[in-house]
Design a protein around this nucleic acid. Structure first.
Length: 399
DNA sequence: AAAACGGGGGT
DNA sequence: ACCCCAGTTTT
C-alpha cells in the first residue's frame, strides 16, 4: 500500500470510528463557540472526567460570554477552585471581556482573532476553529502526538516544542474534506480511549491498527519518546491557623495571594518559606520538640502581619506537590497576644507604605500585604477561592 | 529551549 | 513512585 493510501485509510477509518462511538459529553451538546472555548480551556492538562462537573457548574453560572465578562473575578476563581492552573480562569475571563468589547460578544470565526485571546495557544486555537467553525486547522495535544507518533513511528521527542510544530503539519495534512471538527476530536478520542499511554488497546479496539507502524514493528510501548520532567524541588513551609478573639472570635486569619505567580489571587492560610538552614529542623525533629521553631515562626508571622501572633500547638503536617515544587508544610494553631493590634491599624499602615512594596515577590514586606488579610468564618469559605491544600486544612480545623 | 504553572487519577 | 493529562505564558 502506498503512503498516500495508508494516510487516507487512517483518516477515513478514524473518522468513521469516532462517529460511531463518540462519548456524549456536555460540550458536545451543540457547537456554540463559547461552550467549545470554555471546554477547551478547562481541558488543558486536565482529564475529561475531572472537567465534566466543573464545566456544568461553570456554564450554569456563566452561560454567555457577557455573563462571564461581567462577573467578579473572585466568583470565576471560585468556580475553578480545585481545578488547578488558575491563570486559565483569569485569562478566560479576560478573553470574554475582549470578545465583549471588540467583537460585540460574538466569538469571531477568524483564526488570528481567536489566537489573540488570552490563554489561547496553538492547540486551543485549532480546537476552537475546527470544532466550533469546522475550519481545517490542526489541534495537536498530547493525545494527538502520541497517536501520530505511534501510527507513523515518529521518534522525535514530543517534549520538544519543535516536535509539536512538525506534528501539526502532519495532522493538518490528514484532515478529511469538510470534517475538521470531527476528525480532530476523533484523534483525541482515540488517544483517550484506545491509544493510551501505558497499555494501548490495539486489539481488539483500534480502528487503524492494521496500518499502525509502531504496532507492526512491535514498538507501540516504546512510543512516543518523551524526556522525563525534573522532580519538584522541596520547600519547607510553616503556617499558622490564627484564631481570632473579641469581634473576630470563631474566625481565622487568611490572606489573598499576589496578582501574579503561583496560585495568583487565591486565598490561603498565612505561611512562610523556611530558609534552607532552618528547614532541616522541620524535617529532622518531631513537632512536639519544636517549641523553639514555633516561637520563631510566630515572630516571623508577626513581622509579616503586624499582629502579635502566638503559636500554641502543632496542628498537622501536610505535603502538597505542584508540578515544579513540593511543599512540606507544618501547621500550628495560634492566637493573638495580649497587646495585639487591630487589623484596621495594620491595613492603614499598609496603605501608608504601599507605594514602596511593588517589587516584593514574597510575603516579607509587611506594609503592602497586611491589607490582603481577612478574618473569615466557615461560611466565608463558600465565597472565597482556596487551593485544595488549604481547603482541606480549614475543613479539618472546623470539624 | 527551559521553566513556571495545579491537581488528581491511572498503573 | 512515577506518569501524564483535549497546554500556555514567561524567562
Amino acid at each position: 500500500m502506498e503512503r498516500q493510501e495508508v494516510n487516507e485509510f487512517f483518516s477515513t477509518e478514524l473518522l468513521a470510528w469516532y462517529r460511531q462511538i463518540k462519548r456524549d459529553l456536555p460540550w458536545r451538546m451543540n457547537r456554540d463557540p463559547y461552550r467549545v472555548w470554555v471546554s477547551e480551556i478547562m481541558l488543558q492538562q486536565t482529564r475529561v472526567d475531572t472537567v465534566i462537573p466543573y464545566y456544568n457548574t461553570f456554564m450554569n453560572k456563566f452561560p454567555t460570554v457577557k455573563a462571564l465578562a461581567e462577573a467578579p473575578e473572585t466568583e470565576v476563581l471560585k468556580c475553578w477552585e480545585g481545578l488547578g492552573y488558575y491563570s486559565r480562569a483569569r485569562n478566560l475571563q479576560a478573553g470574554a471581556r475582549e470578545v465583549t468589547e471588540r467583537y460585540d460578544g460574538i466569538v469571531p470565526d477568524d483564526k488570528a482573532s481567536v489566537a489573540g485571546l488570552k490563554g489561547v495557544g496553538p492547540y486551543t486555537t485549532g480546537a476552537i476553529m475546527s470544532i466550533a467553525f469546522n475550519r481545517p486547522e490542526p489541534a495537536v495535544d498530547g493525545n494527538v502526538m502520541r497517536v501520530l507518533s505511534r501510527y507513523f513511528c515518529l521518534e522525535d521527542d514530543i517534549a520538544k516544542p519543535s516536535t509539536r510544530v512538525s506534528i501539526e503539519k502532519l495532522a493538518a495534512s490528514l484532515i478529511p474534506e469538510g470534517a475538521a471538527g470531527d476528525f480532530n476530536q476523533a484523534l483525541m478520542e482515540l488517544g483517550a480511549l484506545v491509544c493510551t499511554p501505558k497499555s494501548p488497546g490495539c486489539l481488539p479496539s483500534c480502528p487503524v491498527m492494521e496500518h499502525c507502524t509502531a504496532r507492526l514493528e512491535g514498538k507501540e510501548h516504546e512510543l512516543p519518546v518523551k524526556t522525563k520532567a525534573k522532580p519538584p524541588r522541596p520547600e519547607f513551609r510553616a503556617a499558622a491557623i490564627v484564631a481570632g478573639s473579641g469581634e473576630h472570635a470563631g474566625k481565622v486569619l487568611v490572606r489573598q495571594r499576589p496578582a501574579t505567580g503561583l496560585l495568583a489571587q487565591m486565598w490561603e492560610l498565612p505561611h512562610l518559606l523556611l530558609p534552607k538552614d532552618k528547614a532541616g529542623w522541620l524535617a529532622e525533629h518531631a513537632p512536639k520538640e519544636q517549641g523553639e521553631l514555633a516561637a520563631m515562626i510566630g515572630q516571623m508571622l508577626e513581622e509579616d502581619t503586624g499582629l502579635l501572633i502566638r503559636p500554641r500547638s502543632w496542628f498537622t503536617d501536610a505535603d502538597h506537590i505542584f508540578s515544579h515544587i513540593h511543599w512540606k508544610m507544618r501547621f500550628y494553631l495560634a492566637d493573638l497576644g495580649e497587646a495585639s493590634g487591630m487589623l484596621e491599624e495594620v491595613a492603614s499602615a499598609a496603605e501608608y507604605a504601599g507605594i514602596a512594596a511593588e517589587a516584593a515577590s514574597e510575603y516579607n514586606v509587611t506594609d503592602k500585604l497586611a491589607s490582603h488579610y481577612r478574618w473569615i468564618g466557615l461560611e466565608d469559605m463558600e465565597t472565597l477561592p482556596f487551593p485544595n491544600l488549604f481547603l482541606r486544612i480549614l475543613k479539618q480545623y472546623w470539624e
